[in-house]
Design a protein around this nucleic acid. Structure first.
Lengths: 188, 188
DNA sequence: TTGACAACCGACCGTTCGGTCGTATTTTAC
DNA sequence: GTAAAATACGACCGAACGGTCGGTTGTCAA
């Protein structure tokens, strides 16, 4: 019975998310998808190659073919932020961050994939925001928003608290709207 | 030649910080401190027992015998926040978060130690802030401050960027001072 | 000088790790 | 129907993992 590539990748994502790169073994992954370890190596040359696949899938799910209802920058921003926040709250951990912490110079492909993953997040958010504010402000707000969401995820992971995530979402949206308003009233 | 317990613990911290719980091996630790693996097991019953030791040491360094210059709550808050931010920026990773992500139900002692570690951080910050504002506000601000610092650390880890950390420190201090001011002017 | 004790080490245990290879089975294309 | 290609598997590799144990070395008080 053929096992879909996407099944392998999304299962690998679950394992990386919950156990990290070093903690997730190829055997665990094989068991989880109902294959033997050797069969995994037909699809992926090595463990490290799973990392870009996992992050690309996640990126695709987050930003791929997203249709904004109104076409307004703020609606689009809120939509993306809430999607990310919901995912992080539900899963309790961020795959990207877990892989960022879990990769090193010994796994250069994985390390590069992690950089690209976060860079893409920042670029996407930044391009939405820059419709309503200068690009340098947009970039900082995009960065701070992602940082807040990552940090709030830690409290979900450690204490199971979801309040910090709610505040992170609210404050990030407020910050973005304030910055957009400040643009039209430059000196104030 | 006797090797100090603190040497072992702080070296274990470096390893946990850079490679995570699963990625740091007892052999690596033994090599790093100039011992053989078997000798480590004289001091620590198992790998997991290193985790509370590492986090206790870190907690001690962060909050132990800190003497505030002025006795003002805001000076004390700034001092602690900047100490944490400096450490996170220099090391590029947070041991606590890496261990939080790297421990599970299979390592209950480590998991508990991580919870205690973050709870202690929140409690300490919260108690400083609650000198100038209601306790529930203090607790939220303490949480958000820690979340911001953790999130900013991710950008240090991934891109080597320190700007996000600077903004995190500045915004957290502003937020705390605003909340303190709002207390004396309740309805505004 | 000796005895006791803490520190340390080498060898070893069973298990798991990432990864390889030859082969069997199923699907697809003509 | 049959050949080729895709899919999956069992058996295996050397290395590394956490952890144990019997024995050697160094320190120091009596």
């Amino acid at each position: 019975m053929k096992v879909m590539r996407e099944t392998i990748v999304s299962t690998a994502r679950e394992l990386f998310r919950s156990r990290g790169y070093a903690g997730a073994s190829m055997n665990d992954l094989a068991d989880a998808v109902g294959l033997k370890k050797s069969s995994l190596y037909v699809r992926f040359p090595n463990k490290e190659a799973l990392v870009p696949a996992v992050l690309d899938l996640t990126l695709q799910e987050t930003f791929g073919q997203r249709v904004s209802a109104s076409g307004q920058w703020d609606d689009e921003f809120v939509e993306v932020i809430e999607f990310i926040a919901t995912t992080l709250t539900d899963r309790g951990r961020c795959v990207g961050l877990h892989l960022a912490y879990g990769t090193s110079d010994e796994t250069p492909i994985a390390k590069h994939a992690v950089r690209a993953f976060f860079q893409a997040h920042r670029d996407h958010l930044s391009s939405i925001l820059s419709r309503a504010m200068p690009v340098d402000v947009a970039r900082d707000i995009a960065t701070d928003t992602l940082a807040r969401l990552e940090g709030a995820t830690a409290f979900v992971a450690i204490f199971g608290e979801k309040d910090a995530m709610k505040r992170a979402v609210r404050l990030s949206i407020e910050e973005a709207k304030n910055a957009a308003a400040a643009k039209s009233l430059p000196s104030r």
